[in-house]
Nucleic acid binder design. Structure first.
Lengths: 241, 241
DNA sequence: TAAATGCATTGATGTCGATCAAAGCCCGGA
DNA sequence: TCCGGGCTTTGATCGACATCAATGCATTTA
């Protein structure tokens, strides 16, 4: 069992998932070659334009997906239309709520997204057979729980300025995970409206805080989307950790 | 394997955990008799007064616990002292963050609490041996994630009135899980200060909203702690789902 | 019983972010 | 190049909640 795992993870030859045509990342890393093969048969790779709904009412309520690229937003709505983004998922995150059908949650493509999807029953069968897979899933779920709780502090106790700084920092970290340097540069994956829904603010407040950061020289913005941060340290100070 | 599980769950004879001296609930339900026995040896049952710190810097950073009774609050602090309660745990919830030492989180007894604790290594060894246990843990983690995300909507998008109503509804549900009736009656497990930290409000606002609900006849309050709700429906309307 | 202590309530005032209202900018299509 | 629509910015005003400051009410201690 451990031999198989080592084989997948440490092989010098890149091991590709036939379904994804991608290097193993995310949940697939936990599967044995034979499981992978049977998974490949039922998997389908899709490209989804920004704004497409991935989960909720639509097609993928009954399937699981690996995110290959792009950013997915998890949205919750109140009856009167107010909405809150409760999480952002980046590659190679796993998408789908095991052991439950109604997810009380909508997943939408925030940017263009490509995913690799499997029918629910296939993954669930594999999960019951493979502790490896379930373990991987537990680790991701714990990670998401930590992130959700961190964000609760942001939502409940931070000022607008701190919220926007926290958001930029989050995107900087996820856009360029290996860069641990001084500075960062990235495209915002969300519109102002989405940022507002993620931070529990209005569009106008988000905009004002961004211009404030611009005027203070903490960030530079090009085309409303491209952001560069000369000193991440400064941003972190403002974010208030 | 399934036979063992059935034996534990469906036996007419009440099966007691020797450590907890309680019926199996929470995570123990996933263990085989032999595992339970070995767990019992290293387990210790404790009663903790309100305010005691259970996790974080203190003793139980390196242990896991089942909550037997009482309410535990999970607290996160910012550098300047602002704090946010990111979760409440009731019996028979499991307490502890697997696969990670620094939890970036403090667990405190909100009321008097009794727990049954085990050393970290013991549980982790069992987890690697028993998929049942890991499965149970995954399910609890998923439940906590759902709860955290629900609360994010409350924190980010609800008004003070809606927040307080949501909180009362949450406590009503957890204090008396079997009661699905029209009305409810319970003691608040949190002080006004804790409620404020849970809702991202100030003490004063919480107090004002409670008196507003009292004057509107939605709730009755005795001794600042005991609450009765004649019509849960009304509270749910105000909570804004 | 009185005093002290720790919560909770209530009131007066201030402020941060929401709301309402106009421009401005960017990009695609004719 | 001009027009149109969608996003974004900016400005003026408003209101919900925070802050500051007493006061009230239990429970504990002497």
């Amino acid at each position: 069992m451990d031999a198989i795992r080592k084989d997948i993870h440490n092989s010098d030859v890149p091991v590709l998932c036939k379904a994804c045509e991608a290097r193993h990342r995310g949940v697939c890393g936990a599967l044995s070659p034979s499981q992978l093969q049977s998974l490949s048969k039922s998997a389908s790779r899709k490209k989804l334009g920004s704004g497409t709904e991935l989960m909720g009412e639509s097609l993928t309520a009954s399937s699981y997906s690996n995110i290959i690229g792009g950013v997915v937003k998890l949205v919750k709505m109140l009856a009167d239309g107010r909405q809150q983004i409760v999480g952002l998922q980046f590659a190679p995150d796993f998408l789908g709520r095991p052991f439950k059908n109604e997810s009380a949650l909508t997943a939408e493509a925030a940017t263009d997204v490509s995913v690799c999807s499997f029918p629910r029953p296939v993954i669930e069968k594999m999960m019951s057979e493979s502790p490896e897979l379930e373990h991987k899933l537990l680790e991701q779920t714990l990670k998401e729980l930590d992130e959700a709780r961190d964000w609760m502090v942001t939502l409940g106790r931070k000022t607008a300025a701190e919220k926007v700084a926290s958001f930029l920092l989050l995107i900087a970290t996820n856009s360029d995970p290996e860069n641990d340097g001084e500075s960062a540069e990235f495209d915002l994956p969300l519109t102002r409206a989405d940022i507002a829904d993620f931070l529990g603010l209005t569009i106008e407040t988000v905009s004002r805080q961004l211009t404030k950061l611009r005027k203070e020289g903490v960030i530079e913005v090009r085309n409303n989307r491209h952001v560069s941060v000369p000193h991440l340290e400064r941003l972190a100070d403002i974010a208030g950790f």
